[in-house]
Each structure stands twice: as structure tokens, then as C-alpha cells.
């Protein structure tokens, strides 16, 4: 992230260390992950130890310190999705794309993430591909949804 843009974000939040979580969310929103250099610069800007930023970035599961893929496939692992077979969907993506949950394919096409519940339990099991919700999934339907990515 450019220094100028980072400074803008920091200024938007009143240069307040209490707003760190919101600042990190803004950075990730634009960069798709939290770049190391940007975090170092952020620590200097706010006058807080880098360790504090690192602790936040690793404590909250929505942050990533690694670049994520062009497409993001999120499998909901809430209880309702779990009892309706969500773990098998994770297995399927892991097997088909040779990555583990939380990882990105070598060609940076796809990141597989899991989430603890997005509150759309009536539609479980649920998969979110690039922000679009796909409800009542099974392995056959997921294969079709992800099929287009494999061809790219």
C-alpha cells in the first residue's frame, strides 16, 4: 500500500490507536491482505509497537498476513451447516484444489476459507464464492459452482 493512502486511512480514524481494528479492516479491504511493510509503517504512524499490531492481526480470524487468491471460497462451518454435511464440502475443495483451509492455490486463483457462521442457517450448508451466497449445497452442486474456476 502506498504511504499516502495509508496516511489517509489513519487520518480517517483520527490517528487513534484505539481504532487499530478498523484501520486494519480498511487496509485488508483494499489490499486483500495485510502486507508486512504496511504494518511496519502503520506502527510508526501510530506510535505503537509492531507486536501489538501483529497480535491483533493474528488474533482475529478475518485477517490474513498472506496474499489471498483472486477468488475466495468461504465454507460456513456453523452448527446447522455442520450437521447438514459442510465438512465434506471443505474436504472436496481441499482435494480438488490441493490446498488446506486457509491456504491459497499456487497460481493465486483461489483461497479456501472457513467461517464459523454467517447466520444464513436456514440455507445450510452454505458456501460463499466471492461474496455470493450459495445455499443448500452438496458436493455435486459445489463441483458445478467451482467448475468454472478450474477451467480459468
Amino acid at each position: 500500500m502506498e504511504s499516502k493512502r495509508l496516511q489517509e486511512i489513519v487520518a480517517d480514524h483520527g490517528k487513534d490507536p484505539a481504532q487499530l481494528l478498523a484501520i486494519l479492516q480498511d487496509i485488508q479491504q483494499e489490499e486483500n491482505y495485510l502486507p508486512k511493510e504496511t504494518l511496519k509503517e502503520l506502527a510508526r504512524e501510530l506510535g505503537v509497537p509492531l507486536a501489538r499490531i501483529y497480535s491483533l492481526a493474528t488474533f482475529f480470524s478475518s485477517f490474513s498476513l498472506e496474499p489471498r487468491g483472486k477468488h475466495i471460497c468461504t465454507v460456513c462451518l456453523g452448527t446447522a451447516c455442520h450437521v447438514r454435511g459442510a465438512p465434506r464440502l471443505v474436504d472436496q475443495v481441499e482435494r480438488d484444489f490441493a490446498i488446506k483451509a486457509g491456504e491459497t492455490t499456487a497460481d493465486r486463483q483461489l483461497t479456501l476459507e472457513t467461517v464459523n457462521c454467517v447466520g444464513a442457517c436456514a440455507l445450510g450448508p452454505l458456501v460463499i464464492l466471492d461474496g455470493e451466497y450459495h445455499g443448500n449445497m452438496n458436493t455435486a452442486k459445489l463441483g458445478r459452482v467451482l467448475g468454472s474456476l478450474k477451467k480459468e
Binding site: 462451518l77 456453523g78 452448527t79 446447522a80 451447516c81 455442520h82 457462521c117 447466520g119 444464513a120 442457517c121
Partner: peptide, 8 residues
């Protein structure tokens, strides 16, 4: 922060 899975 409705974190309980299965509650919405």
C-alpha cells in the same frame, strides 16, 4: 457480536 453458530 452474534457469534453462536446457528443463531441469527
Amino acid at each position: 457480536d452474534e457469534g453462536d453458530p446457528g443463531a441469527f
